[in-house]
Design a protein around this nucleic acid. Sequence first.
DNA 1: AGGCGGTCTTCCGCTGAGCGGAAGGCTCCC
DNA 2: GGGAGCCTTCCGCTCAGCGGAAGACCGCCT
Lengths: 255, 255
Amino acid sequence: MSKSVAAKVAEVLNAFLPGDTRLTLTEICRRAGLPLTTGHRLVGQLTSTGMLERLPEGSYRIGARLWRIGVQAAEPRELRELALPYLAELYTATRDNVQLAVLRADRVLCVERLRGPTSVPVVSRVGGELPLHATGVGKVLLAFADPETAERVLAGPLAAHTPHTVTDPDRLRAELTEIRRTGLAHTQEEMTLGACSSAAPVRGRDDRVVAALSVTAWRHGADLRRLDPAVLEASRDLSRDLAAAWEGLVQAAFH
Amino acid sequence: MSKSVAAKVAEVLNAFLPGDTRLTLTEICRRAGLPLTTGHRLVGQLTSTGMLERLPEGSYRIGARLWRIGVQAAEPRELRELALPYLAELYTATRDNVQLAVLRADRVLCVERLRGPTSVPVVSRVGGELPLHATGVGKVLLAFADPETAERVLAGPLAAHTPHTVTDPDRLRAELTEIRRTGLAHTQEEMTLGACSSAAPVRGRDDRVVAALSVTAWRHGADLRRLDPAVLEASRDLSRDLAAAWEGLVQAAFH
DNA sequence: AGGCGGTCTTCCGCTGAGCGGAAGGCTCCC
DNA sequence: GGGAGCCTTCCGCTCAGCGGAAGACCGCCT
Protein backbone atom coordinates (compact mmCIF):
# COMPACT_ATOMS: atom_id res chain seq x y z
CA MET A 1 0.00 0.00 0.00
CA SER A 2 1.48 3.33 -0.97
CA LYS A 3 1.83 6.13 1.51
CA SER A 4 -0.69 8.95 1.50
CA VAL A 5 0.39 12.49 0.74
CA ALA A 6 -0.60 13.53 4.28
CA ALA A 7 1.67 10.83 5.66
CA LYS A 8 4.50 12.10 3.48
CA VAL A 9 3.90 15.62 4.72
CA ALA A 10 4.27 14.27 8.25
CA GLU A 11 7.52 12.52 7.29
CA VAL A 12 8.88 15.76 5.87
CA LEU A 13 8.05 17.69 9.02
CA ASN A 14 9.37 14.91 11.23
CA ALA A 15 12.67 15.10 9.38
CA PHE A 16 13.44 18.18 11.46
CA LEU A 17 14.86 17.09 14.77
CA PRO A 18 15.52 19.27 17.82
CA GLY A 19 18.78 21.00 17.16
CA ASP A 20 18.37 21.09 13.39
CA THR A 21 18.21 24.79 12.64
CA ARG A 22 17.96 24.07 8.95
CA LEU A 23 18.09 21.17 6.48
CA THR A 24 18.86 20.89 2.77
CA LEU A 25 16.20 19.51 0.46
CA THR A 26 18.35 16.46 -0.12
CA GLU A 27 18.70 15.78 3.59
CA ILE A 28 14.96 16.20 4.16
CA CYS A 29 14.28 13.65 1.41
CA ARG A 30 16.88 11.26 2.80
CA ARG A 31 15.32 11.39 6.27
CA ALA A 32 11.77 11.26 5.00
CA GLY A 33 12.50 8.40 2.63
CA LEU A 34 11.23 10.30 -0.40
CA PRO A 35 12.59 10.64 -3.96
CA LEU A 36 14.02 14.08 -4.67
CA THR A 37 11.25 15.04 -7.06
CA THR A 38 8.50 14.10 -4.66
CA GLY A 39 10.23 15.83 -1.79
CA HIS A 40 10.90 18.91 -3.87
CA ARG A 41 7.23 19.24 -4.71
CA LEU A 42 6.00 18.67 -1.15
CA VAL A 43 8.59 20.94 0.42
CA GLY A 44 7.63 23.63 -2.06
CA GLN A 45 3.98 23.29 -1.15
CA LEU A 46 4.75 23.38 2.57
CA THR A 47 6.85 26.50 2.01
CA SER A 48 3.98 28.15 0.17
CA THR A 49 1.72 27.54 3.13
CA GLY A 50 4.22 28.82 5.70
CA MET A 51 4.81 25.46 7.36
CA LEU A 52 8.39 25.61 6.15
CA GLU A 53 10.61 28.57 5.32
CA ARG A 54 13.35 28.68 2.73
CA LEU A 55 16.53 30.44 3.69
CA PRO A 56 18.41 32.65 1.20
CA GLU A 57 21.14 30.02 0.77
CA GLY A 58 18.58 27.42 -0.20
CA SER A 59 18.03 25.25 2.85
CA TYR A 60 14.79 24.97 4.82
CA ARG A 61 13.62 25.41 8.36
CA ILE A 62 10.40 24.99 10.31
CA GLY A 63 8.14 27.98 9.61
CA ALA A 64 6.59 30.42 12.03
CA ARG A 65 3.15 29.25 11.00
CA LEU A 66 3.89 25.80 12.35
CA TRP A 67 5.02 27.39 15.58
CA ARG A 68 1.67 29.12 15.89
CA ILE A 69 -0.18 25.89 15.27
CA GLY A 70 2.08 23.80 17.50
CA VAL A 71 1.80 26.05 20.55
CA GLN A 72 -1.92 25.33 20.64
CA ALA A 73 -1.38 21.67 21.45
CA ALA A 74 -3.10 21.21 24.82
CA GLU A 75 -0.45 18.76 25.85
CA PRO A 76 2.00 19.90 27.10
CA ARG A 77 0.82 23.52 26.90
CA GLU A 78 -1.48 23.35 29.91
CA LEU A 79 1.28 21.93 32.09
CA ARG A 80 3.89 24.40 30.98
CA GLU A 81 1.62 27.41 31.34
CA LEU A 82 0.88 26.48 34.93
CA ALA A 83 4.54 25.71 35.54
CA LEU A 84 6.05 28.85 34.05
CA PRO A 85 5.68 31.11 37.08
CA TYR A 86 7.28 28.49 39.33
CA LEU A 87 10.08 27.94 36.87
CA ALA A 88 10.47 31.72 36.78
CA GLU A 89 10.85 31.88 40.54
CA LEU A 90 13.23 28.96 40.55
CA TYR A 91 15.34 30.64 37.87
CA THR A 92 15.35 33.97 39.72
CA ALA A 93 16.40 32.22 42.92
CA THR A 94 19.23 30.22 41.33
CA ARG A 95 20.21 32.02 38.09
CA ASP A 96 20.94 28.61 36.64
CA ASN A 97 19.48 26.27 34.05
CA VAL A 98 15.92 25.40 35.04
CA GLN A 99 14.04 22.64 33.28
CA LEU A 100 10.63 20.99 33.19
CA ALA A 101 10.26 17.56 31.64
CA VAL A 102 7.82 14.69 31.21
CA LEU A 103 8.13 10.99 30.53
CA ARG A 104 7.48 10.07 26.94
CA ALA A 105 8.19 6.69 25.32
CA ASP A 106 10.78 5.69 27.91
CA ARG A 107 12.62 8.95 27.40
CA VAL A 108 12.76 12.43 28.93
CA LEU A 109 10.83 15.01 26.89
CA CYS A 110 11.91 18.56 27.68
CA VAL A 111 8.81 20.75 27.98
CA GLU A 112 10.38 24.01 29.04
CA ARG A 113 13.79 25.43 29.82
CA LEU A 114 15.00 28.69 31.31
CA ARG A 115 18.57 29.77 31.18
CA GLY A 116 20.23 33.12 31.50
CA PRO A 117 23.46 34.52 30.14
CA THR A 118 25.41 33.08 33.09
CA SER A 119 23.67 29.69 33.18
CA VAL A 120 25.51 26.47 32.52
CA PRO A 121 25.01 25.40 28.89
CA VAL A 122 23.19 22.08 28.78
CA VAL A 123 22.21 19.78 25.96
CA SER A 124 18.48 19.84 26.58
CA ARG A 125 16.22 21.56 24.09
CA VAL A 126 12.52 22.23 24.32
CA GLY A 127 10.84 19.48 22.36
CA GLY A 128 13.97 17.38 22.56
CA GLU A 129 14.61 14.09 24.29
CA LEU A 130 17.19 12.95 26.80
CA PRO A 131 17.83 9.63 28.48
CA LEU A 132 16.11 8.81 31.76
CA HIS A 133 19.05 7.27 33.60
CA ALA A 134 21.55 10.09 33.09
CA THR A 135 19.51 13.20 33.94
CA GLY A 136 18.04 14.53 37.18
CA VAL A 137 14.54 14.88 35.79
CA GLY A 138 14.92 11.49 34.18
CA LYS A 139 15.77 9.78 37.42
CA VAL A 140 12.79 11.39 39.09
CA LEU A 141 10.44 10.33 36.31
CA LEU A 142 11.86 6.83 36.44
CA ALA A 143 11.60 6.61 40.22
CA PHE A 144 7.89 7.39 40.13
CA ALA A 145 7.03 5.55 36.93
CA ASP A 146 5.02 2.33 37.01
CA PRO A 147 7.29 -0.65 37.77
CA GLU A 148 7.03 -2.13 34.24
CA THR A 149 8.31 1.09 32.71
CA ALA A 150 11.15 1.31 35.19
CA GLU A 151 12.19 -2.30 34.67
CA ARG A 152 11.98 -2.00 30.90
CA VAL A 153 14.29 1.02 30.97
CA LEU A 154 16.70 -0.58 33.43
CA ALA A 155 16.81 -3.75 31.33
CA GLY A 156 17.53 -1.81 28.17
CA PRO A 157 20.82 -0.28 27.04
CA LEU A 158 22.01 2.34 29.54
CA ALA A 159 24.44 4.46 27.57
CA ALA A 160 27.44 6.04 29.24
CA HIS A 161 27.31 9.70 28.24
CA THR A 162 30.29 10.58 30.43
CA PRO A 163 32.69 8.47 32.53
CA HIS A 164 30.43 9.32 35.49
CA THR A 165 27.16 8.00 34.04
CA VAL A 166 25.62 5.33 36.25
CA THR A 167 24.96 2.35 33.99
CA ASP A 168 24.67 -0.42 36.59
CA PRO A 169 20.94 -1.32 36.92
CA ASP A 170 21.24 -2.34 40.57
CA ARG A 171 22.97 0.87 41.50
CA LEU A 172 20.26 2.80 39.66
CA ARG A 173 17.52 0.86 41.45
CA ALA A 174 19.06 1.84 44.76
CA GLU A 175 19.16 5.47 43.63
CA LEU A 176 15.51 5.33 42.57
CA THR A 177 14.54 3.96 45.97
CA GLU A 178 16.35 6.84 47.64
CA ILE A 179 14.66 9.34 45.32
CA ARG A 180 11.25 7.99 46.24
CA ARG A 181 12.19 8.33 49.91
CA THR A 182 13.62 11.86 49.77
CA GLY A 183 11.68 13.29 46.83
CA LEU A 184 14.93 14.54 45.31
CA ALA A 185 17.33 13.36 42.64
CA HIS A 186 20.86 14.49 41.93
CA THR A 187 23.29 13.97 39.10
CA GLN A 188 27.00 14.62 39.09
CA GLU A 189 28.42 15.08 35.59
CA GLU A 190 26.45 12.07 34.33
CA MET A 191 25.02 13.70 31.23
CA THR A 192 27.50 16.51 30.66
CA LEU A 193 30.97 16.89 32.14
CA GLY A 194 30.97 19.73 34.64
CA ALA A 195 27.20 19.87 35.01
CA CYS A 196 25.32 18.75 38.13
CA SER A 197 21.62 18.88 38.85
CA SER A 198 18.98 18.71 41.54
CA ALA A 199 15.50 17.53 40.52
CA ALA A 200 12.11 16.89 42.12
CA PRO A 201 8.74 15.48 41.03
CA VAL A 202 5.71 17.48 39.99
CA ARG A 203 2.49 15.83 41.10
CA GLY A 204 -0.92 16.22 39.58
CA ARG A 205 -4.20 14.56 40.34
CA ASP A 206 -4.15 11.74 42.90
CA ASP A 207 -0.55 12.55 43.76
CA ARG A 208 0.51 11.05 40.44
CA VAL A 209 3.88 12.29 39.17
CA VAL A 210 3.16 14.01 35.87
CA ALA A 211 6.47 15.85 35.39
CA ALA A 212 9.79 16.69 36.98
CA LEU A 213 11.67 19.92 37.36
CA SER A 214 15.32 20.58 37.96
CA VAL A 215 18.16 23.05 38.24
CA THR A 216 21.47 22.31 36.57
CA ALA A 217 24.63 24.09 37.69
CA TRP A 218 28.38 23.95 37.26
CA ARG A 219 30.07 21.36 39.47
CA HIS A 220 32.61 23.79 40.83
CA GLY A 221 29.87 26.12 42.02
CA ALA A 222 28.69 26.01 45.60
CA ASP A 223 27.50 22.72 47.00
CA LEU A 224 24.68 21.41 44.83
CA ARG A 225 22.47 20.65 47.82
CA ARG A 226 22.07 24.38 48.39
CA LEU A 227 19.68 24.20 45.40
CA ASP A 228 17.50 21.56 47.05
CA PRO A 229 15.27 23.91 49.10
CA ALA A 230 14.39 26.03 46.05
CA VAL A 231 13.78 22.93 43.92
CA LEU A 232 11.58 21.36 46.59
CA GLU A 233 9.64 24.56 47.08
CA ALA A 234 8.98 24.93 43.35
CA SER A 235 7.99 21.27 43.19
CA ARG A 236 5.58 21.64 46.09
CA ASP A 237 4.03 24.92 44.94
CA LEU A 238 3.56 23.76 41.36
CA SER A 239 2.10 20.45 42.52
CA ARG A 240 -0.38 22.32 44.69
CA ASP A 241 -1.35 24.59 41.80
CA LEU A 242 -1.79 21.61 39.48
CA ALA A 243 -4.03 19.86 41.98
CA ALA A 244 -6.12 23.01 42.32
CA ALA A 245 -6.30 23.35 38.55
CA TRP A 246 -7.50 19.78 38.24
CA GLU A 247 -10.07 20.41 40.94
CA GLY A 248 -11.23 23.47 39.06
CA LEU A 249 -11.61 21.44 35.89
CA VAL A 250 -13.59 18.79 37.73
CA GLN A 251 -15.79 21.47 39.29
CA ALA A 252 -16.34 23.04 35.90
CA ALA A 253 -17.29 19.69 34.43
CA PHE A 254 -19.96 19.10 37.06
CA HIS A 255 -21.50 22.58 37.12
CA MET B 1 -6.55 24.90 -10.46
CA SER B 2 -7.35 22.39 -7.75
CA LYS B 3 -5.66 22.54 -4.39
CA SER B 4 -2.89 20.16 -3.55
CA VAL B 5 -3.24 17.69 -0.72
CA ALA B 6 -0.41 19.43 1.15
CA ALA B 7 -2.32 22.71 0.86
CA LYS B 8 -5.44 21.01 2.23
CA VAL B 9 -3.40 19.65 5.13
CA ALA B 10 -2.32 23.20 5.88
CA GLU B 11 -5.94 24.38 5.74
CA VAL B 12 -6.95 21.68 8.21
CA LEU B 13 -4.21 22.65 10.65
CA ASN B 14 -4.94 26.34 10.18
CA ALA B 15 -8.57 25.69 11.14
CA PHE B 16 -7.39 25.55 14.75
CA LEU B 17 -7.22 29.07 16.10
CA PRO B 18 -5.71 30.18 19.40
CA GLY B 19 -8.31 29.47 22.01
CA ASP B 20 -9.76 26.47 20.20
CA THR B 21 -9.08 23.61 22.58
CA ARG B 22 -10.86 21.22 20.27
CA LEU B 23 -12.93 21.17 17.08
CA THR B 24 -15.47 18.76 15.60
CA LEU B 25 -14.75 17.20 12.26
CA THR B 26 -17.62 19.17 10.78
CA GLU B 27 -16.25 22.46 12.08
CA ILE B 28 -12.75 21.69 10.79
CA CYS B 29 -14.20 21.02 7.32
CA ARG B 30 -16.29 24.18 7.45
CA ARG B 31 -13.26 26.31 8.31
CA ALA B 32 -10.96 24.54 5.88
CA GLY B 33 -13.50 24.71 3.06
CA LEU B 34 -13.41 20.96 2.51
CA PRO B 35 -16.20 18.42 1.86
CA LEU B 36 -16.86 16.14 4.83
CA THR B 37 -15.48 13.07 3.10
CA THR B 38 -12.25 14.73 2.10
CA GLY B 39 -11.84 16.24 5.54
CA HIS B 40 -12.62 12.98 7.23
CA ARG B 41 -9.90 11.21 5.30
CA LEU B 42 -7.27 13.92 5.84
CA VAL B 43 -8.07 14.36 9.52
CA GLY B 44 -7.82 10.60 9.96
CA GLN B 45 -4.42 10.57 8.31
CA LEU B 46 -3.21 13.49 10.42
CA THR B 47 -4.44 11.69 13.52
CA SER B 48 -2.52 8.56 12.52
CA THR B 49 0.67 10.61 12.27
CA GLY B 50 0.17 12.36 15.60
CA MET B 51 -0.37 15.82 14.13
CA LEU B 52 -3.90 15.74 15.46
CA GLU B 53 -5.39 13.87 18.39
CA ARG B 54 -8.92 12.57 18.67
CA LEU B 55 -10.66 13.01 22.00
CA PRO B 56 -12.86 10.28 23.47
CA GLU B 57 -16.01 12.26 22.68
CA GLY B 58 -15.04 12.47 19.03
CA SER B 59 -13.63 15.95 18.50
CA TYR B 60 -10.06 16.77 17.55
CA ARG B 61 -7.21 18.85 18.88
CA ILE B 62 -3.68 19.74 17.84
CA GLY B 63 -1.38 16.82 18.66
CA ALA B 64 1.73 16.75 20.79
CA ARG B 65 3.79 15.80 17.76
CA LEU B 66 2.94 19.14 16.14
CA TRP B 67 4.03 20.86 19.33
CA ARG B 68 7.40 19.16 19.09
CA ILE B 69 7.80 20.20 15.48
CA GLY B 70 6.49 23.73 16.04
CA VAL B 71 8.80 24.57 18.94
CA GLN B 72 11.75 24.13 16.61
CA ALA B 73 10.77 27.10 14.50
CA ALA B 74 13.73 29.46 14.79
CA GLU B 75 11.41 32.41 14.70
CA PRO B 76 10.28 33.27 17.33
CA ARG B 77 12.08 30.61 19.38
CA GLU B 78 15.44 32.38 19.46
CA LEU B 79 13.84 35.59 20.70
CA ARG B 80 11.73 33.94 23.37
CA GLU B 81 14.59 31.77 24.66
CA LEU B 82 16.71 34.84 25.18
CA ALA B 83 13.77 36.72 26.66
CA LEU B 84 12.57 34.07 29.12
CA PRO B 85 14.95 34.88 31.98
CA TYR B 86 14.05 38.57 31.79
CA LEU B 87 10.36 37.76 31.66
CA ALA B 88 10.97 35.50 34.64
CA GLU B 89 12.55 38.32 36.62
CA LEU B 90 9.81 40.71 35.61
CA TYR B 91 7.17 38.22 36.71
CA THR B 92 8.90 37.57 40.03
CA ALA B 93 9.17 41.32 40.65
CA THR B 94 5.53 42.06 39.84
CA ARG B 95 3.57 38.79 40.23
CA ASP B 96 1.39 39.96 37.39
CA ASN B 97 0.74 39.08 33.77
CA VAL B 98 3.97 39.43 31.81
CA GLN B 99 3.97 39.33 28.04
CA LEU B 100 6.36 39.39 25.10
CA ALA B 101 5.02 40.23 21.65
CA VAL B 102 6.13 41.03 18.10
CA LEU B 103 4.58 42.86 15.18
CA ARG B 104 3.15 40.55 12.57
CA ALA B 105 0.91 41.59 9.68
CA ASP B 106 -0.23 44.81 11.34
CA ARG B 107 -1.17 42.90 14.49
CA VAL B 108 0.33 41.96 17.81
CA LEU B 109 1.57 38.35 17.90
CA CYS B 110 1.96 37.07 21.46
CA VAL B 111 5.25 35.15 21.70
CA GLU B 112 5.28 34.34 25.40
CA ARG B 113 3.18 34.97 28.48
CA LEU B 114 3.74 34.39 32.15
CA ARG B 115 0.99 34.57 34.68
CA GLY B 116 0.62 33.21 38.15
CA PRO B 117 -2.39 32.15 40.18
CA THR B 118 -2.94 35.72 41.34
CA SER B 119 -2.31 37.43 38.00
CA VAL B 120 -4.97 39.37 36.19
CA PRO B 121 -6.62 37.18 33.55
CA VAL B 122 -6.00 38.64 30.11
CA VAL B 123 -7.16 37.67 26.65
CA SER B 124 -3.73 37.15 25.15
CA ARG B 125 -2.60 33.65 24.23
CA VAL B 126 0.74 32.45 23.01
CA GLY B 127 0.48 32.27 19.25
CA GLY B 128 -2.59 34.50 19.31
CA GLU B 129 -3.07 37.96 17.91
CA LEU B 130 -4.29 41.18 19.44
CA PRO B 131 -4.84 44.66 18.02
CA LEU B 132 -2.00 47.16 18.01
CA HIS B 133 -3.93 50.25 19.10
CA ALA B 134 -5.55 48.76 22.21
CA THR B 135 -2.65 46.99 23.94
CA GLY B 136 0.50 48.22 25.65
CA VAL B 137 2.83 46.08 23.60
CA GLY B 138 0.85 47.04 20.51
CA LYS B 139 1.30 50.73 21.08
CA VAL B 140 5.04 50.22 21.58
CA LEU B 141 5.36 48.19 18.39
CA LEU B 142 3.34 50.79 16.51
CA ALA B 143 5.37 53.68 17.91
CA PHE B 144 8.61 52.20 16.63
CA ALA B 145 7.28 50.68 13.41
CA ASP B 146 8.20 52.19 10.04
CA PRO B 147 5.92 55.18 9.24
CA GLU B 148 4.03 53.37 6.47
CA THR B 149 3.01 50.58 8.81
CA ALA B 150 1.93 53.05 11.48
CA GLU B 151 -0.12 55.13 9.02
CA ARG B 152 -1.70 52.06 7.48
CA VAL B 153 -2.84 50.85 10.91
CA LEU B 154 -4.04 54.31 11.98
CA ALA B 155 -5.95 54.69 8.73
CA GLY B 156 -7.63 51.34 9.13
CA PRO B 157 -10.52 50.41 11.39
CA LEU B 158 -9.66 50.98 15.03
CA ALA B 159 -12.10 48.83 16.96
CA ALA B 160 -13.36 49.88 20.35
CA HIS B 161 -12.82 46.86 22.60
CA THR B 162 -14.01 48.71 25.68
CA PRO B 163 -15.51 52.19 26.21
CA HIS B 164 -11.96 53.33 27.05
CA THR B 165 -10.29 52.20 23.83
CA VAL B 166 -8.58 55.11 22.05
CA THR B 167 -9.90 55.04 18.49
CA ASP B 168 -9.08 58.62 17.41
CA PRO B 169 -6.04 58.45 15.08
CA ASP B 170 -4.75 61.91 16.05
CA ARG B 171 -4.93 61.07 19.72
CA LEU B 172 -3.10 57.83 19.03
CA ARG B 173 -0.41 59.65 17.02
CA ALA B 174 0.17 61.92 20.00
CA GLU B 175 0.46 58.88 22.27
CA LEU B 176 2.93 57.24 19.91
CA THR B 177 5.07 60.38 19.90
CA GLU B 178 5.11 60.33 23.69
CA ILE B 179 6.00 56.62 23.71
CA ARG B 180 8.98 57.26 21.44
CA ARG B 181 10.07 60.04 23.79
CA THR B 182 9.72 58.16 27.05
CA GLY B 183 10.25 54.58 25.88
CA LEU B 184 7.10 53.51 27.73
CA ALA B 185 3.49 52.85 26.84
CA HIS B 186 0.48 52.54 29.09
CA THR B 187 -3.06 51.35 28.64
CA GLN B 188 -6.00 51.91 30.94
CA GLU B 189 -8.78 49.36 30.43
CA GLU B 190 -8.53 49.74 26.67
CA MET B 191 -8.43 46.06 25.79
CA THR B 192 -10.07 44.56 28.87
CA LEU B 193 -12.14 46.33 31.50
CA GLY B 194 -10.19 46.45 34.75
CA ALA B 195 -6.83 45.69 33.18
CA CYS B 196 -4.02 48.23 32.79
CA SER B 197 -0.55 47.74 31.40
CA SER B 198 2.92 49.18 31.17
CA ALA B 199 5.01 48.25 28.13
CA ALA B 200 8.47 48.96 26.70
CA PRO B 201 10.40 48.15 23.51
CA VAL B 202 12.91 45.35 23.06
CA ARG B 203 15.72 46.37 20.75
CA GLY B 204 17.92 44.13 18.68
CA ARG B 205 20.61 44.86 16.15
CA ASP B 206 21.08 48.51 15.21
CA ASP B 207 18.72 49.57 17.98
CA ARG B 208 15.81 48.30 15.88
CA VAL B 209 12.72 47.44 17.91
CA VAL B 210 12.11 43.75 17.39
CA ALA B 211 9.60 43.10 20.17
CA ALA B 212 7.82 44.65 23.13
CA LEU B 213 7.27 43.43 26.64
CA SER B 214 4.69 44.42 29.21
CA VAL B 215 3.09 43.85 32.56
CA THR B 216 -0.67 43.89 32.89
CA ALA B 217 -2.30 44.46 36.27
CA TRP B 218 -5.66 45.21 37.82
CA ARG B 219 -6.63 48.87 37.66
CA HIS B 220 -7.50 49.05 41.32
CA GLY B 221 -4.04 47.83 42.29
CA ALA B 222 -1.32 50.26 43.19
CA ASP B 223 -0.51 53.04 40.74
CA LEU B 224 0.48 51.48 37.43
CA ARG B 225 3.60 53.61 37.12
CA ARG B 226 5.13 51.67 39.96
CA LEU B 227 5.61 48.92 37.35
CA ASP B 228 7.58 51.22 35.06
CA PRO B 229 11.04 50.74 36.63
CA ALA B 230 10.83 46.94 36.43
CA VAL B 231 9.50 47.07 32.86
CA LEU B 232 12.24 49.47 31.79
CA GLU B 233 14.90 47.38 33.47
CA ALA B 234 13.74 44.19 31.76
CA SER B 235 13.53 46.07 28.47
CA ARG B 236 17.08 47.39 28.86
CA ASP B 237 18.62 44.11 30.02
CA LEU B 238 16.96 42.04 27.34
CA SER B 239 17.90 44.53 24.64
CA ARG B 240 21.52 44.38 25.77
CA ASP B 241 21.49 40.58 25.71
CA LEU B 242 19.94 40.54 22.24
CA ALA B 243 22.58 42.92 20.94
CA ALA B 244 25.28 40.69 22.40
CA ALA B 245 23.65 37.61 20.89
CA TRP B 246 23.57 39.27 17.48
CA GLU B 247 27.19 40.22 17.89
CA GLY B 248 28.00 36.63 18.73
CA LEU B 249 26.19 35.40 15.66
CA VAL B 250 28.04 37.88 13.49
CA GLN B 251 31.34 36.82 15.05
CA ALA B 252 30.49 33.16 14.48
CA ALA B 253 29.64 33.87 10.86
CA PHE B 254 32.99 35.53 10.20
CA HIS B 255 35.21 33.05 12.05
C1' DA C 1 -42.52 7.43 20.37
C1' DG C 2 -41.30 10.11 16.73
C1' DG C 3 -39.20 13.90 14.40
C1' DC C 4 -35.45 17.01 13.84
C1' DG C 5 -30.83 18.65 13.68
C1' DG C 6 -26.27 17.84 14.09
C1' DT C 7 -22.60 14.80 13.88
C1' DC C 8 -19.63 10.99 11.75
C1' DT C 9 -18.82 6.84 8.60
C1' DT C 10 -18.68 4.18 4.47
C1' DC C 11 -19.24 3.31 -0.42
C1' DC C 12 -17.41 3.44 -5.11
C1' DG C 13 -16.97 5.00 -10.01
C1' DC C 14 -14.20 8.45 -11.98
C1' DT C 15 -10.03 11.12 -13.19
C1' DG C 16 -6.35 14.27 -12.85
C1' DA C 17 -2.98 15.16 -9.09
C1' DG C 18 0.82 12.96 -7.86
C1' DC C 19 4.47 10.19 -9.13
C1' DG C 20 9.70 9.82 -9.82
C1' DG C 21 13.65 8.58 -13.09
C1' DA C 22 16.22 11.08 -16.11
C1' DA C 23 18.49 14.97 -17.66
C1' DG C 24 20.50 19.13 -16.88
C1' DG C 25 22.14 23.35 -14.35
C1' DC C 26 24.64 25.47 -10.52
C1' DT C 27 28.21 25.95 -6.91
C1' DC C 28 32.21 24.66 -4.52
C1' DC C 29 36.51 22.35 -4.03
C1' DC C 30 40.70 19.96 -5.46
C1' DG D 1 38.77 20.02 -15.92
C1' DG D 2 36.51 16.91 -13.12
C1' DG D 3 33.98 15.32 -9.20
C1' DA D 4 30.64 15.80 -5.58
C1' DG D 5 26.71 17.63 -3.86
C1' DC D 6 22.91 20.20 -4.41
C1' DC D 7 18.44 21.78 -6.82
C1' DT D 8 15.13 22.17 -10.88
C1' DT D 9 12.32 20.75 -14.66
C1' DC D 10 10.19 17.48 -17.77
C1' DC D 11 6.44 14.31 -18.87
C1' DG D 12 4.15 9.79 -19.64
C1' DC D 13 1.78 6.93 -16.59
C1' DT D 14 -1.57 5.43 -13.01
C1' DC D 15 -3.89 4.82 -8.89
C1' DA D 16 -4.65 7.80 -4.75
C1' DG D 17 -7.69 11.09 -3.97
C1' DC D 18 -12.06 12.76 -4.81
C1' DG D 19 -16.85 13.81 -2.83
C1' DG D 20 -22.07 13.16 -3.27
C1' DA D 21 -25.09 10.08 -1.48
C1' DA D 22 -26.79 7.11 1.84
C1' DG D 23 -26.97 5.66 6.28
C1' DA D 24 -25.92 5.35 11.36
C1' DC D 25 -25.70 7.50 15.81
C1' DC D 26 -26.79 10.77 19.48
C1' DG D 27 -29.17 14.33 21.92
C1' DC D 28 -33.01 17.26 22.31
C1' DC D 29 -37.73 18.57 22.00
C1' DT D 30 -42.61 17.87 21.54
